[in-house]
Design a protein around this nucleic acid. Structure first.
Lengths: 202, 202
DNA sequence: AGCTTAAAATACTAACGGGTATTTATTTAT
DNA sequence: ATAAATAAATACCCGTTAGTATTTTAAGCT
C-alpha cells in the first residue's frame, strides 16, 4: 500500500526506499552485531541521509526493531513454520539440521543469527527491539514445545523428556550452532556436534 | 614482589592497588559485558584516576586482557584442573555440573561467564584480550579432548564419539548453560537442560 | 634546604555517538 | 506564478569515548 499505489501525494516525492535501508540495516546488524554499527555508518552504507532514517524509523531502537522483524520474517519464519505444519517429527528434525548447516557464506549471508545475537546482548537494546526479540523467543519456545507434544502423542517421540526441557534444549543447540558458525568452525565440526546434540532423542 | 617487599622506592608512593582495580574491572566486564562499560566508568567505580589505569595497564586492551586473565585464574582454573587431575570420568562430569549449576547470585557473582562473552564478542576486542581468550579456549578444548581420550582408554567412556567432537560439544553445552543463566533461566531449567545434554554420554 | 623520582589529579584533545534544527529542493493545489 | 506541503541534505548540538599533556603532591637522596 505504499510502493506506488494510489496516492499522488502532495509534497516532494520520497526517493528513499525503506526496504533498501532495511536490507542494509539487517546485513549490518547481522554481520557486525547490534552494537557494532552506528546509525551514521548505516546511513553511509545505504547512501541515505541520517535524518531520512530518523523520519522513517523514529530512532535507533525503531530501526533495530524493524531490522529484527524483517530478519525474523525472511530468514526464520520458514523454520518456525515447519514446526506448526504437520510434517513427521523426523522430517522436521531434518529441516532444523538443514537450517543449521546451511552454508551462509556460499549464499552471501553473514554467519550467525541476528535473533540469537540480539537476545544475547539484550541490555544493549532499546525497549522496542528487546520486546520483539523476547516475543519471538517465547513464540519459538512455545512452538517447539507444542511440536514435541504433538510428536509424543503421535508416538514419534518415544523419550520421556519433559517437553519444556526438550524445547529449551533444542533452542539452545540451534543458538550454539549459530555461534560456532560465527566463530568460523568447519562445516563438518558443526554437523558432528549438532547431530550429537540431536542424538539425545533417539 | 611488589606489594610491600623490599623497595622503599624513590618517588611518591603509589596508593593505587592494582588488585583492587582488577577486581572492579573483572566485575564490571563480567556483569556489563566487555563493551558495556568504559574506562571512564571503571575508573569511577574503582575510585581511581584514569591516568592511573593507563599507567598500570597501558590501554583498554591491556586492561581487558588483565581482567580476563584474572578471571580465568580465579574462576575457571579450578574447573580446568579437574580435567588434568586423574579423577574418574563420572566425578569430573559431576564437577562440570556443579560449576554450571553454581548459584552466582547467592555468591555475589554476576551471572554468565566472562570467557564465554569475550569469545563471543571477539571483534570488539583488541589484540591482547582476543589472543588471551583464544588461547584459553584452545587450551580448554585440548584439555577436554585429552580428558576424553584418557577416559576412553580407561573404559570409562564407552561411546564411539570422536574425542574432538565430544570436546566441542561439552564446551558448547557449558557456554550454553552460562548464557541461559545470564538470561535469567530458573535453576531447575538449567539443571534439566544441562543433564539432558550430558545424557548423550550414557 | 634543594634536587630527583615517580605517582596522583586535573584538564584537555580529537573523534564519534544519537539525535535535531534549519535550509533547500521538488511536487500538487490554487 | 505563487503558496502549501513534504522530503532531502547540510550543519549543527551535546554527551561520551579512548587516550594524553600538564601540573601537583609526596616521597628519598645529597
Amino acid at each position: 500500500m505504499n510502493t506506488k499505489g494510489n496516492k499522488p501525494a502532495r509534497g516532494r516525492p520520497k526517493t528513499m526506499s525503506r526496504d533498501h535501508v532495511l536490507k542494509i540495516a539487517v546485513e549490518s546488524y547481522w554481520a557486525d552485531g547490534p552494537t557494532g554499527v552506528s546509525i551514521n555508518e548505516i546511513s553511509r552504507r545505504a547512501g541515505v541521509s541520517k535524518p531520512g532514517i530518523y523520519r522513517e524509523f523514529g530512532n535507533e531502537d525503531g530501526l533495530k526493531q524493524a531490522a529484527l522483524i524483517a530478519y525474523q520474517a525472511t530468514i526464520l519464519a520458514p523454520l518456525v513454520d515447519v514446526l506448526t505444519d504437520d510434517v513427521p517429527f523426523g522430517q522436521a528434525l531434518q529441516a532444523l539440521t538443514d537450517f543449521v548447516l546451511l552454508d551462509h557464506k556460499a549464499h552471501g549471508l553473514p554467519d550467525g543469527c541476528l535473533q540469537v545475537t540480539m537476545c544475547r546482548s539484550k541490555d544493549d537494546l532499546g525497549m522496542l527491539a528487546r520486546q520483539s526479540a523476547d516475543k519471538f523467543r517465547e513464540q519459538t519456545l512455545c512452538g517447539l514445545e507444542q511440536w514435541i507434544e504433538r510428536a509424543k502423542s503421535k508416538g514419534q517421540f518415544a523419550s520421556n523428556i519433559p517437553s519444556r526441557t526438550a524445547a529449551l534444549y533444542i533452542d539452545a543447540q540451534i543458538a550454539s550452532a549459530m555461534e560456532l558458525q560465527k566463530q568460523g568452525a568447519a562445516q563438518d565440526e558443526l554437523e558432528h556436534v549438532f547431530k550429537l546434540a540431536l542424538s539425545v532423542f533417539s
